[in-house]
């Protein structure tokens, strides 16, 4: 692990807060999973990707969704292939044993099993764990505690190198206390204006300084409103990129109008933010 994790992250275009950097350092030092919570679009998933880059290991991602079960997350036997194998053996008059039928060539590895069987510790990202149901959460608990998987036909597979695990949640459901206790916890907040300016500079190196300042100030003004879907950092970057693509270097009323859909994605929000947007446009026009 690099000594200065924050600098290593920044090199790769991720401006991380001190608390997040410390938490990520502990993931590696303590070997415990880290649960990242926070509003949508603050860079939780991106943190895992960048950590994998910094550590120089693979990123294995499990996207959770409603109805996700162990077969989709862990492993599945390739039944069609097994049947073909049986038929071929029958036609050839060869006897078939259990070992033939449940060999590694018939095992389809899904992300969790794949993460366990890596020779070097990968970064395992379990994304939006709140979308999976409680049954899956309980299953996950067992895996995170023991780092072993029992496949009835093969026996117990133990992790050779423990993955660095990051879980993210958008709080669409309360996670169980048991899962929280297994994990380190970090709440990821929207960045401060100065940090967000840094992020813009790091991600869009060609951006005009004045425009970057205008965009960050506008996004911060919008976040202060009681919006249904407040803009995240992802929206800030999209917005700035949209302005760059349209060759706008000043956030005036027409530029705002043309690119509003990049930052406010609900009609009610656009209506609610109208007075604020007018004020921003007027302020920028006067500057």
């Amino acid at each position: 692990m690099p000594l200065d994790l924050a600098a290593a992250f920044r090199e790769r275009g991720y401006v991380a807060g001190d608390a997040l950097v410390t938490a990520l350092r502990l993931v590696v030092a303590l070997g415990k999973p880290l649960l990242l919570e926070g509003p949508a679009g603050v860079g939780k998933t991106e943190a895992a990707k960048t950590l994998a880059e910094v550590l120089g290991t693979r990123l294995i991602r499990l996207q959770c969704y409603e109805g996700l079960d162990a077969q989709a997350a862990l492993y599945e036997w390739n039944y069609a292939r097994q049947l073909l194998h049986l038929r071929a053996a029958e036609a050839g008059g060869r006897p078939v044993t259990d070992e033939d039928l449940y060999g590694p060539q018939f095992l389809m590895q899904r992300p969790l099993l794949e993460a366990i069987r890596q020779p070097t510790s990968p970064v395992l990202l379990i994304d939006e764990v709140d979308r999976a149901d409680e049954a899956f959460e309980a299953f996950l608990l067992e895996l995170l505690a023991e780092w072993q998987v029992t496949v009835p036909e093969l026996g117990t597979l133990r992790a050779t190198a423990r993955p660095h695990v990051l879980l993210t949640s958008n709080r669409s459901r309360e996670l169980s206390d048991a899962l929280r206790r297994r994990c380190l916890y970090q709440w990821v907040e929207y960045p401060s204006a100065a940090q967000e300016l840094d992020i813009l500079r790091a991600r869009l190196p060609g951006i005009d300084e004045a425009l970057a300042r205008q965009v960050t100030a506008a996004v911060h003004a919008l976040r202060a409103l009681p919006l249904g879907k407040p803009p995240g950092v992802a929206e800030t970057l999209d917005w700035a990129a949209a302005l760059l693509a349209l060759h706008r270097d000043w956030l005036d009323a027409p530029a705002l109008e043309a690119t509003l859909g990049a930052v406010l994605k609900l009609h009610e929000d656009q209506r609610l933010a109208r007075p604020t947007l007018d004020r921003i446009a007027a302020h920028n026009a006067g500057a």
Binding site: A19, T22, A23, R25, L26, L34, Y185
Partner: peptide, 18 residues
Amino acid sequence: AQVQDALRAVLTTSPAEA
């Protein structure tokens, strides 16, 4: 500050606790 961040990550489990 680093000690605080580290202990917070270990000892808390929600923003309210933080």
